[in-house]
């Protein structure tokens, strides 16, 4: 143990604990306390109600599809940005962050207008029988948009650092590009991809602003869990709001643990190689 010579621990730690306690821990504690006052039977009745379960299915299902899309598209985007040169590449690289920088409500109305039945993209899609806005597909589009940067940004640095000698070895052994990608490169990218997937999925589960505009918000079919909690509040059913919010909170904690585990593993993996 090193001798402590630097000053400022009481002040810095004091401010930190005060802020974390007051801003983060207090509200979350109050939410858990409120949900806890319900009693097990009431709590279970609310969180396992038909409408709540349908909202979990809509939220988790859409998040899974959006993440699967981003896994493929994000991987392709990262690949193109790292491996190829083309005009406008730096602009594309910068604009990848737009979904992070753009307020979710703005993204919500923009995507809705774009994918509505009379929108630029919505009308051709509707004419071939694929309505997007106000359907479950709309939720997927909103989630895919808001979580787009995660997989790109976790894979990009790993792909940049990938040792060319590994590919060359594969090529000298006569492997086709596709075989080398699948058997040599993909396993090396897998930890970063998994970390990106968990971040993307977690973000999609919690997304609200972008989704409520484009989803039809119909109970049982296009109502996400966060919206259900919001609706219960507007109905002054605070206990139900607390119970449903607590489900989202527990899910977030689980996803946080998974994400940190996967990221630590991804980092360890890249540092070793």
């Amino acid at each position: 143990m090193k001798r402590r010579v630097l000053p400022g621990l009481p002040l810095a730690l004091g401010i930190t604990l005060l802020y974390v306690g007051f801003i983060v821990a207090l509200p979350l504690g109050a939410l858990i306390y409120k949900a806890g006052t319900l009693g097990l039977e009431d709590y279970w009745r609310i969180v396992s109600s038909e409408r709540a379960v349908a909202s979990y299915r809509v939220t988790a299902g859409s998040a899974a599809i959006a993440t699967a899309f981003n896994l493929v598209f994000g991987m392709a985007l990262a690949w193109v940005l790292v491996r190829y040169q083309f005009p406008g590449k730096r602009l594309v690289d910068a604009i990848v962050d737009l979904p992070f920088a753009l307020p979710t409500a703005v993204a919500g109305i923009a995507l809705t207008t774009l994918f509505a039945a009379n929108g630029w993209l919505g009308s051709p899609l509707a004419s071939i029988g694929i309505p997007v806005a106000y359907t479950p597909l709309g939720i997927v589009v909103a989630m895919a948009f808001t979580s787009l940067p995660f997989i790109v940004r976790t894979v990009q640095p790993v792909l940049e650092d990938l040792d060319p000698a590994l590919e060359e070895a594969g090529q000298s052994l006569g492997g086709s590009d596709w075989t080398i990608f699948r058997q040599v490169m993909l396993p090396l990218l897998a930890p970063a991809l998994m970390a990106g997937v968990s971040l993307s999925f977690a973000r999609s589960l919690g997304e609200f602003g972008a989704i409520i505009f484009i989803a039809g918000n119909q109970p049982m079919s296009t109502e996400i869990t966060a919206l259900l909690a919001f609706i219960r509040l507007e109905e002054y059913d605070y206990q139900a709001a607390a119970a449903i919010a607590s489900v989202l909170l527990i899910t977030a904690f689980v996803m946080l643990a998974v994400t940190n585990f996967l990221q630590a593993r991804a980092l360890r993996y890249t540092q070793r190689s």
Binding site: L31, G206, F208, A226, A229, L233, A245, L248, L249
Partner: peptide
């Protein structure tokens, strides 16, 4: 989720 934060 921001909604959870608001509810809290």
């Amino acid at each position: 989720s921001p909604v959870v934060a608001g509810v809290a």
